[in-house]
Amino acid sequence: MSVWSEPTRQRATEIIGRYPKRRSAVMPLLYLAMAEEGRLSEEGMREVAEWCGITPAQVQAVASFYTMYKTEPVGRYLVSCCTSISCMLLGADEVLGAIEDQAGVPDGETDKEGHLSVEHVECLGACGGAVAVQVNYELIEGVTPDRARALVDWLRNARPDVVNGDEMQELFGTRRSFEWAIHEEDGAVGPYPAFQPLGTVGR
């Protein structure tokens, strides 16, 4: 009945094992479901329901509460531009506009090729490095409209298999909230956070 691959099933078993109660694994398993299919499908939610011993409606109630579980198809690169207060004060609306223009994708939508999705988001915790933009939850700080346009072009043309925050920061960012001297290899391979082996490479 399961739609999940064997390694994913193993991961699911392992994740559930970490928590005192099965239901607590809903959130990580939802990410797992997204990693499996690139977005959160109904099938994926049904599967999570079975693993956690709850109904699909209970899973959807949780999944739809959070903004990072995407039930609509998302592009390979999810570009999130912070437009909360601190970033807004430093031009976030203009940066978002530049991204929309260059990508030809309005806020909240995905291009036809399934390549780029654009969204505005609330505060990313990078206010000292406003304007903040994330690609697949890998952060770039100090983004300006010009740099945002260059970022979109780069995603279009270079089509990196892994998006890496440090690399993008060097190419498209300016001021950061704080210094970070070490270069990190890990990055995201899909529109969900690269955490633990989930969509992470470079280890």
């Binding site: 109904e42 939610m45 709850i54 109904t55 409606a57 209970q58 899973v59 959807q60 109630a61």
Partner: peptide, 22 residues
Amino acid sequence: GDPLIEFMERGNLTEINTFPDH
């Protein structure tokens, strides 16, 4: 004991609904 109808979404978009096809 039939948790088949739930709050979906959040904030001002919160609504009551069932799982599709369920």
